[in-house]
Design a protein around this nucleic acid. Structure first.
Lengths: 116, 116
DNA sequence: TTGACAGGTGACCATTTGGTCACCTATTCT
DNA sequence: AGAATAGGTGACCAAATGGTCACCTGTCAA
């Protein structure tokens, strides 16, 4: 596959976001931060049938991308969501001027959906 | 692969963003909107060696994801960047309150990089 | 100190994805 | 009308990715 210069670390972020299970994990951490592998494993298990190894592998990719940061506490490893890479992703294609228009649009969309 | 409910169209967006060539195409459209396939082909060719077919296939995926919208004018097809899906992606993991802190952080980062 | 619990590593297989090619359609110019 | 230009489609192959398994390490409690 082709990879362009200065794209190496970005690539990890986008690749990490490309998988539905990994997005589910980010959703879980967005809802409540600082969960252990076992907890996250349970979240995933509620939706699909995946072993602990699968979840662990996904978390490793999220961590390598900087989307999740971890700290060890005894024998448990706590996971936290890091929003910075997502904001940078956003800023790559949405500048300050476009942002206002787009924000207005997405809020309109949300209101319309709420009223349905 | 696993796919979760209400994730189907999101999935297209994330998958579309996962490829470096497609990101390069979005960059090109962000810089100047409304380009034809031939123009975009030239942009990609300057970086890697890819045939028209490859570029065409990538554009089709971007269009399916809603990241690029097109309109035909005679025999040329003009491509435009649509920022809305990217904003929605952003809003999924960054709420209004977090946004302020993160924006401050990323701007600090940018300033530091400019001064180096 | 023995067992249970929380997690990690590397090999391996099935599926998906990126990319090209041969071939086709529609529009413009002379 | 005929040639050149702009683009599209489906089949196909090589490489990357998702997921599991067997096996290993470190930590806590009885």
């Amino acid at each position: 596959m082709v990879t362009y210069s200065q794209e190496v670390d970005d690539d990890l972020v986008f690749k990490a976001l490309a998988d539905p299970t990994r997005r589910l994990l980010l959703d879980a951490l967005f809802e409540r931060d600082g969960r252990s592998l076992s907890e996250l494993e349970a979240v995933v298990a509620a939706r699909s049938e995946m072993t602990r190894f699968g979840v662990s592998k996904h978390l490793r990719l999220l961590e390598a991308a900087g989307l999740v940061v971890t700290r060890k506490q005894g024998r448990v490893k706590l996971h936290h969501l890091n929003p910075v890479p997502i904001r940078l992703l956003h800023d790559r294609w949405i500048d300050k001027y476009t942002e206002r228009r787009v924000t207005a649009l997405t809020e309109l969309k949300r209101q319309l959906e709420d009223n349905s």
